[in-house]
Design a protein around this nucleic acid. Structure first.
Lengths: 341, 341
DNA sequence: GCGCATTGTCGAAGCGCTTCGACGATCGTC
DNA sequence: GACGATCGTCGAAGCGCTTCGACAATGCGC
């Protein structure tokens, strides 16, 4: 392993000159810089991480606090994790993965050891212990998700409220007067997960404003949960002509299967919208029109937010990403005066 | 942030005494040790990671090289990642996640910066560039998976060859003479993924030894791939009475759906075995008997292997975990002289 | 020409810890 | 009593880097 001293000797300068050439914090003559860079290439020099951390108080490591509970949706989780790693790499940052159940102790440990420059926090609960922790630590932090009532933190999220409204508007504009919702597993709801509340709030408000009748089922996890939820919805809302999925793909698949078993066609008999979909709604057996979850954009923004705070260039801000719409033909006007579902 | 100097002052000893009390590398009087530990508690001291790395050449970070290709199975991947993180935590190690496409540069970077003590490598291809890299770097490395012809590395894996043999034996013992296989997506096979070759080798050898006829389909990714694979298998092996899945759950689900559509019952008309299942085969619509992938055991062993090499306590070894069997009633004797599938 | 600002480079200090070498006190054996 | 081993603790060096303060040379404006 070549050290900075080796590079300095090879380039015929002092080690501080090498350090400045790398950091750009002082002017270096072009010819000197070239000599140094050549020496670095030839010696395959990589700065020692421990020395950099100790001397410069910058580690180039972000923690990702990504607790995976027993009911977590693995594909979505993995997508988030991967996207954060990619975004961090673009800034020469590595990601230390904190995936244990007790994420508070993970953050505390890594921060207290001065091992991380900042943290990206996902899986944000309504009352999230990580908020006061990072506040107390003064740790540059970026949330993927918005804990309610928090405005002194950097948060990025889809505008779930808007998404709920848009979902209703879209279906109401197509003529639907009775819209069912299959939501996330009730275990998420029991945990008072904030994004669900925001979506539901927007959805319900828009229904009220437009005189649309609605009912929601919070299913069990898994395909059978989706099937049962659809059956229950049909009882609750017998004239339902449109269905909104605000849940992940196993539930969606279960419900779609049930719809198919009942001989209902999409969108002929039932219009379907996948709202805030983290999955590829076009790869389902029936491709669904969707309001997609802008997962990559969220992750990239979260990393930018965290690094802005690390560099003291930014201040905490809450950013909501406007929902978009992907039309895959699963929405149409309801059949006249029929009771299709 | 309290430093070791603060602790030493509070305990009335030198900083080297504090260091020895923490490391246990020199004898410390019990009363002195107590004074020190009390000071550590009161000051909430955590050692500075950079200083430890620089002074002691031990980082307490393992890298996890976990490349996720475009056809990767996200749930399985996430399970592996989580399990490695958990295993590392048990040894007070954190995990640096290298999930970028070019995993060779990730390992090289982290090692060259002396940022990691070792690396756990998953997603092992038959010809894997990471093998010569870690060999050249002399980096303590543990593979989840066995690159063929490699015996100077620490590898842990299920004994896929044995699993293939056991699958045949189990079904042949129940009386099946024609067994179909739905394997992993052909894109995996195109990549010459070694665990598939080992499973297939054991499977085919055991079929030959027992005079069992067999055919294999390598489907497209996804549910429809599973459905098509099953249909093709029925054409290839019209008297097929048993089916082995050696693939992940979307394909399994697609094939199971097709089986159900054809009005076939499991195990009455068709015996089914999930081989090397990384998913919870008991949570499928039809719970399947399975040879499970011992994912957690593999990950924990890999971490142990890596740390043994870090501590220079172990030498590279290849360990194959014997397959186990979970009976969930999806295997029975074939119907006499019928052509059920 | 003089003074000030900029460019370019240097040596030294020090970040927080680990570990080496040393020393004093105590104990056990001859 | 003398010697060697062990226990217990210390101060100093140094790990590889960043950054401070300083200095010399050069360029520009008055």
């Amino acid at each position: 392993m070549a050290t900075i001293t080796d590079v300095a000797q090879a380039a015929g300068v002092s080690i501080s000159t090498v350090s400045y050439a790398l950091s750009g914090k002082r002017s270096i003559a072009a010819s000197t810089r070239q000599r140094i860079m050549r020496a670095i290439d030839e010696l395959e020099y990589e700065p020692n991480a421990g020395a950099r951390m100790l001397a410069g108080a910058r580690t180039n490591i972000l923690a990702l606090s990504a607790p995976l509970g027993p009911d977590g949706h693995l594909p979505t989780h993995m997508r988030f994790v991967t996207s954060v790693v990619e975004a961090a790499r673009a800034h020469d940052y590595d990601v230390l993965l904190l995936a244990t159940d007790d994420e508070v102790s993970g953050i505390r440990r890594a921060a207290s050891r001065s091992l991380i420059d900042g943290v990206v926090i996902m899986g944000v609960a309504t009352v999230d212990e990580r908020v006061p922790l990072v506040r107390r630590l003064g740790l540059p932090s970026a949330f993927i998700g918005v804990p309610p009532g928090i405005d002194d933190m950097s948060c990025i999220d889809l505008d779930f409220d808007r998404a709920g409204r848009d979902a209703v508007a879209m279906l109401a504009d197509a003529g639907h007067a009775a819209i069912g919702v299959i939501g996330h597993p009730h275990s998420y709801v029991d945990r008072d997960t904030n994004f669900i509340r925001r979506f539901t709030h927007g959805f319900d408000e828009e229904c009220r404003a437009r005189g649309v009748r609605t009912a929601t089922q919070w299913p069990e996890i898994g395909r059978s949960g989706g099937q049962q939820a659809y059956d229950l919805l049909r009882e609750q809302l017998p004239d339902m002509t449109a269905l909104v999925f605000h849940c992940n793909e196993p539930i969606v698949e279960g419900a779609l299967r049930r719809i198919s078993e009942l001989g209902l066609s999409i969108p002929g008999d039932l219009s379907v919208l996948a709202a805030c979909a983290s999955y590829a709604a076009d790869e389902l057996e029936t491709p669904l029109s969707a309001i997609p979850l802008p997962l990559d954009e969220m992750c990239h923004s979260a990393v930018e937010n965290a690094l802005a705070l690390v560099d003291a260039l930014g201040h905490p801000k809450v950013t909501l990403i406007a929902p978009t719409y992907l039309d895959r033909g699963s929405i149409a006007a309801p059949k006249p005066a029929a009771h299709p579902a």
